[in-house]
Amino acid sequence: MEKEFQSAPKHFWQTIQRLRRGKRGSIQAVYSKGGTLLTSTEEVIGRWIAHFEELLNPPNLSSTVEADLEDEASKHQSPWRKSLR
């Protein structure tokens, strides 16, 4: 640290200030699905949790949609994949 202080004092003090402040979150508010602004920490965290649960656990598709997707996928498979079955 002493070497950095001598060679680049401005950078040294910026680093010290950043370390003193600690880690800060950059997002302070988000919108709900309904469009209202959520500002409390609990609401924001709850919205992020809901968002990622929706991404990671999509709702179940109906059987007709799944069948259509399988038919569409089988049309676009390479001949190599068909021979492996």
Rank of each mutant, 00 (worst) to 15 (best):
K3R: 08
K3H: 05
E4Y: 02
E4V: 09
F5Q: 05
S7F: 03
A8P: 05
P9L: 06
P9A: 05
K10T: 04
H11V: 10
H11K: 13
F12H: 13
W13C: 15
W13Q: 15
Q14M: 08
I16F: 01
Q17F: 00
R18F: 00
R18G: 08
L19E: 11
R20K: 13
R21E: 10
G22L: 09
R24C: 07
I27A: 06
I27S: 05
I27G: 01
I27K: 10
Q28K: 14
V30F: 10
V30D: 09
Y31S: 14
G34A: 07
G35A: 09
T36I: 06
L38N: 06
T39D: 02
T39S: 04
W48L: 06
F52E: 08
F52C: 03
E53N: 15
E53C: 08
E53P: 00
E54K: 15
E54L: 10
L56P: 00
P58I: 02
L61A: 10
S63E: 15
S63M: 10
S63P: 02
A67Y: 12
A67L: 14
D68Q: 14
E70F: 00
E70L: 11
E72H: 08
E72K: 09
A73C: 00
S74A: 09
K75C: 02
H76D: 06
H76V: 11
Q77I: 02
P79C: 03
W80C: 01
W80M: 04
K82M: 06
K82H: 04
K82Y: 02
